[in-house]
């Protein structure tokens, strides 16, 4: 299976007929989307409509119950390591170790992302971008919820990734931090990056395309007769 719908250039990321099964409940079904370089996709929908599940599915953590994920027209499952190397994921949880300092927390993820000797420099830059620079030596346990969120989002900056997957990124963020996020998203997209975001609040992404998962909820009776 190569390419979708016979377009000249396949979309950088596409989902075809995706379905998600959690427990024995079909969360969404027959969900398709296509994302080209520089585009943003904003997932909306009620609680439990599968926004987080779709993001985890795109990340490759959760295998699709049905359907396919394609990156540059190729099936993601054929080379999951290459797909993982192109994405950055910021989930509900901030993945911080509270006994380590702010700088250590971010430095760890910079190293794990494969950054070498330049890592230290980019860590300082990322902290500065999120206005956390002067907290670098503070153990993470003393950060407020919003500061922890900013530190988690700073991971996006320590390793360049083409696709940002953000699950409720604005939770606990104040207005100026949301503006920082909007600014970073705009620059990321201007450089050809893509973003998939789940959100309730209004994100400052301008012309992001909306995908409502409520439209893909399976009819109640069809819940158990899934393929």
């Amino acid at each position: 299976m190569t390419g979708v719908a016979g377009t000249a250039a396949p979309p950088a990321l596409a989902g075809v007929g995706l379905a998600c099964l959690r427990g024995d409940r079909l969360v969404f079904a027959d969900l398709s989307f296509a994302l080209h370089a520089g585009e943003a996709l904003i997932l909306t929908g009620a609680n439990g409509s599968g926004k987080s599940s779709l993001i985890r599915m795109i990340a490759g953590l959760l295998p699709p119950f049905d359907g396919h994920l394609l990156a540059d027209g190729r099936l993601v499952q054929e080379d999951p390591a290459a797909h993982r190397a192109l994405l950055a994921y910021v989930g509900h949880q901030d993945a911080l170790k509270l006994s380590l300092t702010v700088g250590d927390n971010l430095g760890f993820w910079a190293t794990m992302a494969g950054r070498g000797a330049t890592g230290r420099h980019s860590v300082d830059e990322a902290l500065a971008a999120w206005d956390l620079g002067r907290l670098s030596d503070l153990p993470a346990r003393y950060l407020s919820a919003g500061q922890r969120r900013r530190l988690a989002l700073a991971r996006l900056l320590v390793a360049p990734r083409r696709l940002w997957l953000l699950d409720e990124p604005t939770v606990a963020l104040d207005r100026s931090s949301i503006a920082i996020l909007g600014d970073l998203l705009a620059r990321h997209r201007a450089a050809g990056g893509m973003a998939v975001m789940a959100t309730h609040a209004d994100l400052p992404v301008g012309d992001g395309r909306l995908l409502s998962l409520d439209d893909h909820a399976p009819p109640p009776a069809a819940g158990m007769s899934a393929p």
């Binding site: 985890r56 990340a59 490759g60 953590l61 390591a81 993982r84 190397a85 994405l87 994921y89 989930g91 509900h92 949880q93 901030d94 993945a95 911080l96 170790k97 993820w109 794990m112 992302a113 494969g114 991971r155």
Partner: peptide, 15 residues
């Protein structure tokens, strides 16, 4: 597992 680190390790470049 509880603080989300494992998700990120599973998505990382290290097998």
């Amino acid at each position: 597992f509880e603080d989300g680190t494992l998700d990120l390790l599973a998505l990382g470049t290290l097998p």
